[in-house]
Design a protein around this nucleic acid. Structure first.
Length: 415
RNA sequence: GCUCCGGUGGUGUAGCCCGGCCAAUCAUUCCGGCCUUUCGAGCCGGCGACCCGGGUUCAAAUCCCGGCCGGAGCACCA
């Protein structure tokens, strides 16, 4: 995927880190050729004609393969022939000499170059002899003056392999740190390859599907880069695998957005209620409880929508309050009828008896996409905050993604 | 199977190298209270951990050995 090249950089910048140098290994193949030629001349590398299976036998038994001890001249000739395209894929590889008796078989004479005729996404068919990751990054780390490497523990053996090259050239190996595998309780193992498959299978709509734990998805959900940074820093760099809950991320993000996210009403699964004896009036509600100077205005009227959840909780005869508007008593649940009790907040039990609502004039259709999808009515005022994260009161923080003239689409951020 | 690494409250983390100040840090979750016109935020309080067994030592989460459990590598993949 060619686009993925840009995604790394894009995501990196979004997180707030500007790379000071970007290196595409595929564009620097000739550099690696230089170094492998040196190693061939030094007798520290050799062309090997063993098949994978054959070599595995040698590796497992710690025996040098018959190709290992040819002269430098011959080795270089074969190398030239490889470059000239005289060999087929899989016919020959270049191996770095380590120690066939090394106690860890994973380290024994590893492959540095192999032949691939398939065109490369970035450089097309300019080359057909490519370095392996271990070889390329060994050279590149040294050339670019890398002093510290932080990478996953799956690459721990890379260090032991690469050190042979560093020793041959008398270079100094960087200091390494490794991290373990990260699992998210709510999702499972983080694995780009399995996510890719599931996207292709149609399970997810794309890399930014809000159900995914990808940076793209988190970004779409309106997370602050700062929260993600803090979250990952809190995980530390340790070789142990970690299994962490998204709740920790939510907590970090909430600290940042709570003060700035405007509050609006979102009535999911709306139920219509008629209130007898109430007069219409405008209701001013603070956009954010921490700043009482900024308001939004809702029309309080005798027909309002409340969410089904709330409606079902109340019994006939019970009094509850439409937040900031008025108190009503449910008189006929069957018909959705209530009667006006008063405007005064005083005397109403606080907490669960105060619910959010919307009258028809202020309601626009809204869908919230997340782990589950919610359909309902959102407050019209929210249209002022398209592209921003708002809090739908008593629901969750949501990123308002778009309004198509008919319906507002929001992405579920977190509770 | 071979090689290597790791195991601190529900979760993540600090401390381990250089033993004592660790009746073990911080964050989050959970539970309780206060506050609040949101089941949000804030404030206060609480529960809760050094994998097990030996050894060294006046003293061990920290050092040593063994066990158990978990993970990584053993690719012509990145």
């Amino acid at each position: 995927m060619v686009e993925a090249y840009d995604w790394y950089i894009d995501d990196c910048k979004w997180l707030g880190y500007e790379p000071d140098k970007i290196i595409y290994a595929s564009k620097r193949i000739p550099v690696y050729y230089e170094y492998i030629e040196k190693l061939l001349k030094m007798g520290r590398a050799y062309p090997c004609f063993c098949s994978k299976e054959e070599f595995k036998k040698f590796r497992d038994s710690g025996i040098e393969c018959p190709h290992r001890n040819i002269s430098c001249e011959k080795a270089l000739d074969i190398w030239k022939d490889m470059l000239d395209g005289k060999y087929k894929e899989g016919e020959v590889v270049i191996r770095i000499k380590t120690d066939m008796k090394h106690k860890d078989p994973a380290i024994r004479d590893w492959v540095a170059f192999r032949i691939i005729y398939e065109p490369h996404p970035l450089v097309g068919d300019s080359f057909h002899v490519y370095p392996t990751l271990d070889f390329e990054s060994a050279i590149e780390d040294h050339l670019s003056g890398v002093t510290h490497i932080i990478r996953g523990k799956d690459l721990i053996d890379s260090e032991r392999r690469q050190r042979y090259i560093y020793d041959y050239f008398s270079w100094q190996y960087p200091i390494t740190k490794h991290w373990g595998r990260v699992k998210i309780h709510e999702f499972g193992k983080l694995s780009t390859s399995s996510i890719k498959k599931e996207i292709e299978a149609g399970k997810y709509s794309g890399w930014d599907d809000p159900r995914l734990p990808t940076l793209k998805a988190l970004r779409r959900r309106g997370f602050e880069a700062e929260a993600i940074r803090k979250f990952f820093i809190s995980l530390g760099v340790g070789e142990n695998d970690v299994a962490v809950s998204m709740k920790n991320l939510y907590a970090e993000n909430r600290k940042l957005i709570d003060v700035k996210a405007n509050r609006y009403f979102f009535v999911w699964d709306p139920i219509e209620i008629k209130i007898e004896g109430v007069e219409s009036r405008d209701v001013k509600i603070p956009l954010n409880p921490s700043n009482k100077d900024r308001f939004r205005v809702l029309k309080g009227s005798n027909i309002v929508y409340i969410t089904k959840n709330d409606f079902e909780r109340f019994n006939e005869g019970e009094i509850f309050r439409l937040k900031d508007f008025c108190n009503i008593k449910l008189i006929d649940k069957e018909k959705g009828k209530a009667e006006f009790v008063g405007y005064e907040l005083k005397g109403v039990k606080k907490g669960k008896n105060i619910i959010h609502w919307l009258s028809k004039d202020d309601a626009i259709p809204c869908i919230v996409l997340g782990f589950e999808n919610y359909k309902g009515l959102a407050e019209k005022n929210a249209l002022n905050d398209i592209d921003k994260v708002v809090q739908f009161e008593r629901f969750a923080f949501c990123k308002l993604e778009k309004f198509d003239g008919e319906r507002l689409t929001a992405i579920y951020t977190h509770p």
